[in-house]
Design a protein around this nucleic acid. Structure first.
Lengths: 241, 241
DNA sequence: CGGTGATTTGATTTTTCTCAATCCGGGTGG
DNA sequence: CCACCCGGATTGAGAAAAATCAAATCACCG
């Protein structure tokens, strides 16, 4: 069963987990863990990791599991702003502020390490490598969001869905899982919210891609059958804006 | 003539201009200017301030004028990611990287102060206040973009245009100009690109808002006639995603 | 074994895009 | 000084994409 590939097992607190992660690649783990009071928390699927308005203590390192982040307006509209795999840093966007501005919700059973924001900033001043890693993480997430902004604004439904699947596969691949076969942890509605589409449109786009033999979908189980042609779909001439 | 209100006059290099700006509010200007080698540049309307792929030297402080930033994909699609007024920091998203990832183009005749990225980061380590200001600027821009993401994904064309006009007015107001009468510095196509709409749709939305007496538009000249009702437009129940 | 939430598919409506024509104002050059 | 030109803006008509409404199916859970 391929499913096992994406089952993330809880692991003991390992200093090297930081350094190996995308977020803190290259940072001496001792420098981090010795000086920072990391708080480990486990959160069940569907439960919030943090919510908008919560007092901000610091960013959350996603040690294992899958999560989504979202933003809501006063009048109840809301939108998913990203899906996160283990090794990512959640809540960075509120660094230095008093309260969380966004929501983060576990899509899996999740373990997060809550880092102390103030100490982290102070540590940055002493450790240029850490500062660099944190800055890079921040710029990386800005750029990622801008690229999605671009895609959502210029690609049609089918292209957006294709891109999401490819992106998800790539990111899983970086973590050592299969890039071409995985289980989606989010609903069609959540995908639609992220891509600026209705859930029915997401379903239809997937059905069309499957009909053309580019992917195989069975509810949450996705297989990318022809990566090249799927990638070609996302590059087809569309609106240029 | 109200038009004069938004004419931005060039001013001499003033340390306090930094401290008064949104970006560096509260930072001792001496600490900044004494230690940083700021390079002033004037850029004519329509010309690039920097382009994707340019070597990254540091962020640009927009000392006067109006600018847009945009991002492009390899296959030529592109999208405006923001409009910027004086006092904002451009190119922060590439801090710590080797090359610019986005484009910034002057919509006005513009003056920018190019800050040295490396020195800036080093100065942050010595000056917590500066670090805090920079972090805040970064989180502010992330949140602003996420809010626009939310709006673009959940509001219809008319609502998006109404929101843009209100936002533009508010930001001008913060700079001491009129919030209800201003000249747009960007084309309908640029507005559309930012809002995820075609230029004709932007025009139509404005015409509709004008028809209902909420605004008065004459090409680039915009007057907000009924702020309350215009704001109500943006809050009308729409798609919830 | 029923119930619930998620997904899929179909039919229809709405919104926005696209294509086309026209208008308008500022700037240029005769 | 004026006619012309050109980019931007506006408006209209028709087409396309996606939203909306509705119904049926499916998997999983208690």
């Amino acid at each position: 069963m391929h499913v096992a590939l994406i089952q993330v097992q809880p692991t003991p607190l390992e200093p090297s987990a930081f350094a190996q992660s995308q977020a803190f690649r290259g940072v001496e783990p001792e420098l981090l863990l010795q000086n920072l009071s990391v708080k480990r928390r486990r959160i069940a699927a569907g439960q919030p990791i943090f919510s908008a308005g919560d007092a901000y203590a610091g960013p959350h390192f996603l040690h294992c599991g899958v999560a989504k982040s979202s933003i809501a307006s006063a009048d109840g509209r809301q939108r998913v702003t990203g899906f996160h795999l283990r090794g990512e840093l959640l809540g960075l966007e509120s660094l230095g502020t008093a309260t969380h501005a966004c929501d983060a919700i576990a899509l899996d059973d999740v373990e997060v390490w809550q880092l102390p924001g103030g100490e982290l900033l102070a540590a940055c001043a002493r450790n240029p490598l850490l500062q660099r890693a944190l800055t890079e993480q921040l710029t990386r997430s800005i750029l990622s969001e801008r690229r999605w902004m671009l895609s959502v604004g210029t690609l049609n439904a089918e292209q957006r869905v294709a891109l999401l699947l490819l992106d998800f596969g790539d990111r899983l691949c970086e973590l050592g899982f299969s890039a071409s076969h995985f289980i989606l942890r989010m609903t069609r509605a959540e995908i639609g919210s992220f891509l600026g589409l209705q859930l029915e449109t997401v379903t239809r786009a997937m059905s069309l891609l499957a009909e053309r033999g580019l992917i195989a979908v069975e509810r949450r189980d996705v297989r990318i059958l022809d990566t090249d042609r799927l990638r070609a779909v996302t590059a087809t001439p569309a609106r240029t804006h």
